[in-house]
Amino acid sequence: MTAEVQKYTLEQIEALEVAPGFEHEKLEGWVPSLASDEEVRDALEKAFDYRGDVTITTKSGDKIEAYVFNRQTGATLQDSFITYFAPNVNGKLKMSYAEIARLEFSGKDRAAGKHWEDWVKAYNERKAAGEKDIALHPDKLE
Results as ranks from 00 to 15, higher is better:
residue 1 M to Q: 11
residue 2 T to F: 13
residue 2 T to W: 08
residue 5 V to M: 14
residue 8 Y to K: 01
residue 8 Y to P: 00
residue 9 T to F: 02
residue 12 Q to R: 09
residue 12 Q to P: 02
residue 12 Q to L: 03
residue 14 E to T: 10
residue 14 E to D: 09
residue 15 A to E: 15
residue 15 A to G: 13
residue 17 E to D: 15
residue 18 V to D: 15
residue 18 V to E: 15
residue 18 V to R: 13
residue 19 A to K: 04
residue 19 A to Q: 07
residue 21 G to V: 08
residue 21 G to C: 05
residue 26 K to Y: 07
residue 26 K to Q: 13
residue 27 L to V: 11
residue 27 L to T: 08
residue 28 E to A: 11
residue 30 W to G: 01
residue 31 V to I: 04
residue 31 V to R: 12
residue 31 V to L: 03
residue 32 P to T: 12
residue 33 S to R: 07
residue 33 S to Q: 02
residue 40 V to Q: 10
residue 41 R to H: 02
residue 42 D to R: 09
residue 42 D to P: 00
residue 44 L to R: 01
residue 46 K to D: 04
residue 46 K to H: 05
residue 50 Y to M: 04
residue 52 G to C: 06
residue 53 D to Q: 12
residue 53 D to L: 00
residue 54 V to P: 03
residue 55 T to C: 05
residue 57 T to I: 01
residue 57 T to A: 04
residue 58 T to S: 03
residue 59 K to D: 03
residue 59 K to Y: 04
residue 63 K to G: 04
residue 66 A to G: 15
residue 66 A to K: 10
residue 67 Y to P: 00
residue 67 Y to I: 00
residue 68 V to I: 12
residue 68 V to N: 06
residue 69 F to A: 08
residue 71 R to L: 13
residue 71 R to H: 13
residue 73 T to E: 11
residue 73 T to Q: 09
residue 73 T to P: 00
residue 75 A to Y: 05
residue 75 A to D: 10
residue 76 T to V: 03
residue 78 Q to C: 04
residue 78 Q to P: 00
residue 79 D to I: 01
residue 79 D to N: 04
residue 80 S to R: 04
residue 83 T to I: 08
residue 85 F to C: 04
residue 86 A to Q: 09
residue 86 A to I: 00
residue 89 V to P: 04
residue 89 V to H: 13
residue 89 V to M: 07
residue 91 G to T: 05
residue 95 M to R: 12
residue 96 S to Q: 07
residue 97 Y to M: 00
residue 99 E to G: 06
residue 100 I to A: 05
residue 101 A to N: 06
residue 106 S to C: 09
residue 106 S to I: 03
residue 107 G to R: 08
residue 107 G to P: 02
residue 108 K to N: 10
residue 109 D to K: 07
residue 109 D to G: 11
residue 109 D to N: 07
residue 111 A to K: 07
residue 113 G to S: 10
residue 114 K to G: 10
residue 116 W to K: 10
residue 118 D to S: 15
residue 120 V to K: 14
residue 120 V to L: 08
residue 120 V to A: 14
residue 120 V to T: 14
residue 121 K to W: 11
residue 121 K to D: 15
residue 122 A to H: 13
residue 123 Y to Q: 11
residue 123 Y to A: 14
residue 125 E to D: 14
residue 128 A to Q: 09
residue 131 E to G: 11
residue 133 D to V: 07
residue 134 I to K: 13
residue 135 A to L: 11
residue 136 L to Y: 15
residue 137 H to R: 14
residue 137 H to N: 14
residue 138 P to Q: 14
residue 138 P to I: 03
residue 138 P to N: 13
residue 139 D to N: 12
residue 139 D to H: 13
residue 141 L to M: 14
residue 142 E to T: 11
